[in-house]
Design a protein around this nucleic acid. Structure first.
Lengths: 151, 151
DNA sequence: TATTGTTATACTCTATAACTATA
DNA sequence: TATAGTTATAGAGTATAACAATA
């Protein structure tokens, strides 16, 4: 029995056991209470990820932001232009390699993160309380580990 | 020390430990090898989730599909119209409640799922091999459990 | 020649509201 | 009155290719 015959006509996994679908459903579930709060401070999910990424890593180039924030470069270009207009980030040419542009968060950008912190913490606290800190840590560990696997 | 002062100025979690971001990054990582294969058989991710959902549950109404496939009803309406045109699903009025429309997968729709099965199984096998079946099951268990938590 | 980022384009999805039909 | 689904519309993101500037 070779690899092909082994799997021939095999039924698909239940959607709850499909990793991509399970990841999406879980994400939607967690985002549900967060989304209206992001809307209230006037940032999209994409902008939020960019803010968090740049706040965490300090000045960084766009290719790196795109990777960390899960965005394509053309999308990022447009979004960063808007964020620069709104004064949330700055962009400057890299001195050593002038193809690169270095993006940095501004004080206003950091303030936006601070503004959203209580809401973010509230959801996290509820999760710790109802799910357990240990299981939450384990889940985050497993997620990080999957990201390291070459598929 | 009240709730506000307790969390005031607290630093955000690292993005790798932010559950929404971790879920998205992991999903993107897993989808990377799958996406071109879906493109090859001509379905978007959304159409794919609809197909899987309807194949799994049998004839079902759109509100239920929207919930399971993580789509808004207006998006679903449009996508289902296209899928009906392509002969992947059928829609009919519910006899008992004529507001409802019942969606069912067609033979062509099932064929599309079969067509993609080997690719899907390949990714899953790699995951089992490099990550471990036990950990994969644990991850899926944890994901399901988080979806049950009221946030 | 390869890489970084931008622009252009067509398509798709999101989000909200207003609407129709039915219950 | 409430619910299921549709339509309309504006905004945003996706995906690909073509392009400019720099390495």
């Amino acid at each position: 029995m070779n690899e092909n015959t082994k799997n021939a006509g095999q039924a698909p996994r239940p959607t709850a056991r499909s990793l991509p679908i399970a990841l999406l459903r879980t994400r939607e579930h967690v985002m549900e209470p967060i989304r209206p709060l992001l809307a209230k401070i006037g940032v999209t999910e994409q902008k939020w990820r960019i803010l968090r990424t740049v706040a965490e890593s300090g000045p960084m180039e766009q290719t790196a932001i795109a990777r960390e924030a899960c965005l394509l470069l053309p999308s990022l270009t447009r979004i960063l232009q808007a964020m620069e207009n709104d004064g949330l980030v700055t962009r400057r040419e890299d001195d050593k390699d002038r193809r690169r542009s270095i993006v940095e968060i501004t004080a206003a950008g950091r303030k936006l993160i601070d503004l959203h912190q209580p809401a973010s913490i509230a959801v996290y606290d509820t999760l710790e309380q109802k799910f357990g800190r240990q299981k939450l840590d384990m889940l985050l560990d497993l997620l990080e580990e999957v990201q390291e696997i070459e598929l």
